[in-house]
């Protein structure tokens, strides 16, 4: 157990191939990260399958799926307007992927020896792709609908010319920063939360191993704290999915409706 005292809280984010071996840098290598993506996919499809019973009076499961549909649908409708329905598949996909990944990574699957939960959204290579996809939709829709007139998004309407000259570059830079902030937000939230969980989980074990009454007391305190952090982690996981969906809807709204 003395070796574990030097455990690395970052180790939970390291990717390794399933079945051992070295990372090879090829696209098709099946890693623990890929496996958890497939688990996320399976959970999402299994959950959504419950919504296809098409009963007039829904059961609990169907009501949950319909509630979730209504929740994300409202984000799209309120953010974008009547045209929001067209962009709902992507917003819903991103929302569900982030939500399922965040929550699954906080599940206590490690009680099974040898299994470790892996936070897919704790990898900026994943959240970055999500935000780039959202941003690509914004750019595509904007230039498709408005042509070069889309660039007028950066110019505040109705302002005097000097103000326009001054504000337009700022708007442009803030527009360019959007994909980074959009992708970094869920990554940082998962990263920080899971490091905290790992560190305090380690304190619990170390306190127990110390064998003294003081160690047990510290261990108990850390365990209680850990419960709250875990609850917070679930909350943050939901909020990050919501924020990503909301911001994607708002950015698409800019592209659809300009001002």
């Amino acid at each position: 157990m003395a070796a574990e005292a030097k455990m690395d809280p970052m180790a939970q984010f390291s990717i390794s191939p399933i079945g051992g071996g070295e990372l090879t840098g090829t696209p098709f290598q099946f890693t623990n990260s890929a496996m958890w993506m497939i688990v996320v996919l399976a959970v999402i499809i299994a959950f959504m399958w419950g919504g296809t019973k098409r009963q007039i009076v829904p059961g609990r499961w169907q009501a949950a799926v319909e509630g979730l549909f209504g929740f994300v649908g409202d984000i799209a409708k309120q953010g974008i307007g009547p045209e929001g329905r067209r962009y709902l598949p992507w917003i819903f996909t991103a929302f569900m992927f982030i939500l399922a990944s965040n929550w699954l990574s906080a599940m206590p699957v490690a009680v099974v020896p040898g299994v470790h939960p892996f936070a897919v959204t704790g990898q900026f290579s994943v959240t970055g792709v999500l935000s780039i996809l959202s941003f690509a939709i914004v750019l595509a829709v904007g230039f498709w609908k408005h042509g070069l007139h889309f660039l007028s998004l950066f110019v505040p309407s109705g302002a005097p010319l000097p103000v326009k000259m001054f504000v337009a570059p700022i708007e442009f830079v803030s527009f360019l920063v959007r994909p980074f902030s959009l992708g970094l937000r869920p990554f940082v939230a998962m990263f920080a939360g899971h490091v905290l969980l790992e560190v305090f989980g380690n304190f619990v074990i170390q306190g127990l191993n110390a064998g003294s009454a003081l160690g047990w007391g510290i261990s108990a305190l850390c365990f209680i704290f850990l419960i709250f952090v875990n609850a917070l982690e679930l909350l943050v996981g939901g909020i990050q999915a919501y924020v990503f969906a909301l911001l994607t809807a708002l950015y698409i709204n800019d592209a659809v409706n300009l001002h």
Partner: peptide, 30 residues
């Protein structure tokens, strides 16, 4: 070392969610 496999599996996963859930199940629920 991992970005290629990460992107490959991620795009695959997102595509399945997008088409099966977003395009397939959502209209039924709606």
């Amino acid at each position: 070392l991992v970005y290629q496999s990460q992107w490959f599996w991620l795009v695959l996963t997102l595509a399945v969610i997008f088409f099966v859930v977003g395009r397939g199940i959502l209209p039924k629920v709606e």
